[in-house]
Simulated scan of single mutants.
Amino acid sequence: METVNSSAHPGPVLLPLSGPARVARLVGRRARFLMDLEDGAGERFTAHTNNTGTMLGLLRPGAQVLATRRDTPGRKLPWSVEAVRPGAFWVGVDTSVPTRALRAAWAAGLLPETAGYETFKAEPRFEGGRLDALLEGPAGPLWVETKNVTLVEDCQAQFPDAPSERARKHLTELSRLARKGERAALFFCVQRPDARCFGPAWAVDEAYGREFHQALEAGVEAWAYVLDVGEDGYRLGGRLAVGGAP
């Protein structure tokens, strides 16, 4: 079995991988949620992916894929895609990671933005539906929507990688909360080490870019952090500057 490159940001592991790891070669993607893979011994198998985005620029035939075994009762496929390596480094594509990383970083006291908040609730309900997290403390509620970022162009991390009505709806709801005087934020989890800043992907979803900047003007905060995939899990990197005005 092949090993995974070490992290670009040395330091303690924030999140371990979700199970025993296996490195394979990408044969192809099908039905949005499935990837056909082949390991070094020539054995082919299918892994589940929860990433419904295009994963633009990542899914090249022959690219390395890091899959982890998850023996959850009722699963049809034991392997899930954790990351893809189309070139020199791994890119994390598991969309469940950002909220878990947010929670782990809050619990470890690694996010200055969440200092003083005492409780963390995942997928809280509110009048507009659900968001990914609600932190509460003496300062009041902090609503957070997390996003997984896998696209980088000219050293700028960008989101989304495909037009997303759902992502635009989240901006609308966060803006409404901010205008009511409640704290609301976006946590962009950049799962690759080559980004130097963050901005909306105007070329992919111009409407998202416009609504993103309207959300910032409404008081919504945007936190973009690098999260590196290493052979033993995920490590939190630095915070990226946010910009990207047209």
Rank of each mutant, 00 (worst) to 15 (best):
R192H: 07
E113I: 07
A157D: 08
R30D: 12
E43M: 11
Y225E: 05
D71E: 14
P193L: 10
E136S: 15
G116A: 05
R210M: 08
P138I: 00
W106Q: 10
P141E: 09
G19S: 07
E38G: 06
T99E: 15
S80R: 13
H170E: 12
K180F: 01
E231T: 06
E153P: 02
Y208T: 03
R69Q: 14
V13L: 13
A157R: 02
L177V: 08
T119K: 13
H9T: 15
E123R: 15
A63I: 01
G74I: 02
E165R: 13
K147N: 11
G116R: 07
L37N: 10
V84Y: 04
A108C: 06
G237F: 11
D194C: 09
S18Y: 01
M1S: 13
D161M: 04
R192Q: 10
A201K: 11
V84C: 04
V226L: 15
A101M: 00
R103Q: 15
L34W: 06
T99G: 11
A133W: 03
L66R: 09
L186A: 05
T54A: 10
D161R: 01
G128F: 08
G87H: 12
A107K: 15
G19C: 03
R25S: 15
G244S: 07
Q64K: 12
A195Y: 02
V93N: 06
R25T: 13
P193C: 07
A24Q: 03
A67S: 14
L135E: 03
A88F: 03
Q64H: 12
P200H: 05
A245P: 09
L134H: 09
W79Y: 08
A83T: 01
K121H: 14
R176K: 12
L102W: 05
T3H: 11
T114C: 14
Q158I: 00
A207P: 05
G233R: 11
G74S: 09
F126T: 04
P73H: 08
V152H: 03
R176D: 13
R183Y: 04
T54L: 07
R239E: 06
A222W: 01
E43V: 12
F212W: 15
V93A: 03
R239H: 05
A31K: 10
L186I: 13
A63P: 04
P193Q: 11
A184F: 03
N50D: 14
E145Y: 10
G53W: 04
A47Y: 00
G199W: 00
F187V: 08
P246E: 04
T49L: 09
E182G: 00
T150K: 07
A21L: 02
L135G: 01
G11N: 10
C197P: 00
R85P: 10
A21G: 12
A104H: 11
E2G: 00
